[in-house]
Design a protein around this nucleic acid. Structure first.
Length: 418
RNA sequence: GUGGGUGUAGCUCAGCUGGUAAGAGCGCCGGGUUGUGGCCCCGGAGGUCGAGGGUUCGAAUCCCUUCACUCACCCCA
């Protein structure tokens, strides 16, 4: 049995790479317009980094991380998300002392050991955006706006923006208590999963899809209504700024994100076209994170986009390779083959896209191959033509051909094929 | 971790209740033009029917086990 790729870890074959390149290049262009710089961070980090940032009791840390000791016994983890690493790099290199260093993006593979399904894989890819050191609600709105601009640029259908506020530690602690009190009263009516959540991470109960829990959740206290004065004003200001940018959004008090570090504004871009999944991108503010990781007490905000989900949503034709003149060199005879070979290299170096056949097949077979490769032109180099000091250039679309002298052939071809 | 679906040619799939069905379309290779593609015609290569075991005179077909893929739960991008 031949060796196969690991479950949930997939190859990206040439026929879809164009879609990936599209998604990446549009991100680079738009994020750069918004003042973001690319940063590249490692895929492997010390396990402790994720445990401390994401939260010890989150599903990600408890059961989804690829963690193993290296040869020295150091516990390492394949990153399940990017924010922790970007924050770590920012702290490690003291980038807060560099005036031009506060808006970053990065993209690449993440790893979570979940059961794969549509739009969710064990190795998946994210585009990640982070802003450090800006408290103003304006930046929350800007980041949300940029996410939408990006998704619109890719022409994704039916995207909706949901926002919520998670409050700050000051309002969340008392709220947790009142939620806990409420849940204890209705404990026996909760589904088994929610029984567990009640103790581990009560806020997650808002995400439950079981009908009976949904009813109980409707009656439960809502964090949004228990925000402290500052958080309430902050949330209002985020909304005002979104209005000024003409961003349509829905306030979703049940939008609870799974990573512990979120504070205040959280948001998700959702779509109905992803099977059981709905989020294409999501993020929020994480004001305490940098300090928790041993850095300066700077606020942060950002989001992550799931690239596989993005690509599932793209139009079928998106990312198709650009039409380009391509030349196929067809050779007849040993001497012609040798001459065609060096000609092909020379033309490639000169900037043309050139392919040839190396198996000395019949001209018919070579022409067929040229057609399969969507060549626009075929240069027929035969011993007969060589004897005359010429070659034949066939225009595949026009089905016409003419003799071209070998002298100045490269210039001739460059002129005709651009 | 739990449940459903699916595993037959490179790809998409037929082949139902066991008895010359190992098949189609597309793709690939070659021929029809001793040196000319697409369309058409002709021919060819290619499969331990996911794997293992069982029932039977006989299994791609029925039973068991196992693996893989997939969708969903959970959770998230």
């Amino acid at each position: 049995m031949a060796i196969k790729a690991v479950k949930g870890i997939n190859d990206i074959l040439p026929n879809v790479v164009g879609r990936w390149q599209l998604v990446e290049s549009v991100a680079r262009r738009i994020f750069s317009n918004f003042g973001f710089q690319e940063i590249r961070i490692p895929i492997l980090e010390k396990t402790e980094l994720f445990a401390r940032s994401i939260g010890e009791t989150t599903d990600i840390v408890e059961k989804e991380m690829y963690t193993f000791p290296d040869r020295n016994g150091q516990l390492l983890t394949l990153r399940p998300e990017a924010t922790a690493s970007v924050v770590r790099a920012f702290i490690q290199h003291k980038l807060h002392l560099e005036p031009g260093m506060r808006k970053f993006y990065t993209m690449g593979p993440m790893f979570r050991h979940e059961r794969p399904q549509k739009g969710r894989y064990r190795q998946f890819h994210q585009i990640d955006v982070e802003v450090f050191g800006v408290d103003d609600p304006m930046i929350d709105a800007e980041v949300i706006y940029m996410l939408l601009v990006y998704l619109q640029e890719l022409k994704l259908p039916d995207i909706k923006m949901h926002i919520n506020s998670m409050g700050c530690p000051d309002c969340r602690l008392p709220f947790r208590q009142s939620l806990a009190d409420y849940l204890e009263g209705v404990s026996d009516k909760l589904c088994s999963d929610c029984q567990r959540r009640r103790r581990t991470n009560p806020l997650r109960i808002f995400d439950c899809k079981v009908d009976s829990c949904g009813k109980l959740v409707d009656e439960a206290p809502v964090l949004l209504e228990h925000l402290c004065h500052e958080c309430g004003e902050n949330f209002q200001s985020v909304q005002d700024n979104l209005h000024s940018l003409a961003v349509a959004y829905t306030i979703d008090p049940l939008l609870v994100r799974g990573l512990d570090y979120y504070t205040r504004t959280t948001f998700e871009a959702i779509t109905p076209h992803l099977g059981a999944q709905d989020a294409v991108g999501g993020g929020g503010r994480y004001d305490g994170l940098m300090k928790v990781l041993g850095g300066p007490d700077l606020p942060g905000t950002g989001f992550a986009i799931g690239m596989e989900r993005l690509i599932l949503l793209l139009d079928d034709k998106a990312g198709a390779p650009k039409e380009r003149n391509r030349l196929f060199v067809a050779c007849l005879g040993e001497e012609a083959k040798s001459r065609g070979f060096s000609l092909a290299q020379e033309l490639r170096v000169s900037g043309l896209s050139v392919e040839m056949d190396y198996e000395s097949k019949s001209l018919k077979a070579q022409m067929r191959r040229a057609d399969k490769l969507a060549s626009t032109h075929v240069l027929i180099v035969g011993d007969d033509e060589l004897a005359k000091g010429a070659a034949l250039l066939r225009d595949m679309e026009a089905s016409s051909q003419e003799e071209i002298p070998l002298e100045g052939l490269v210039e001739q071809l460059l002129g005709r094929m651009k």
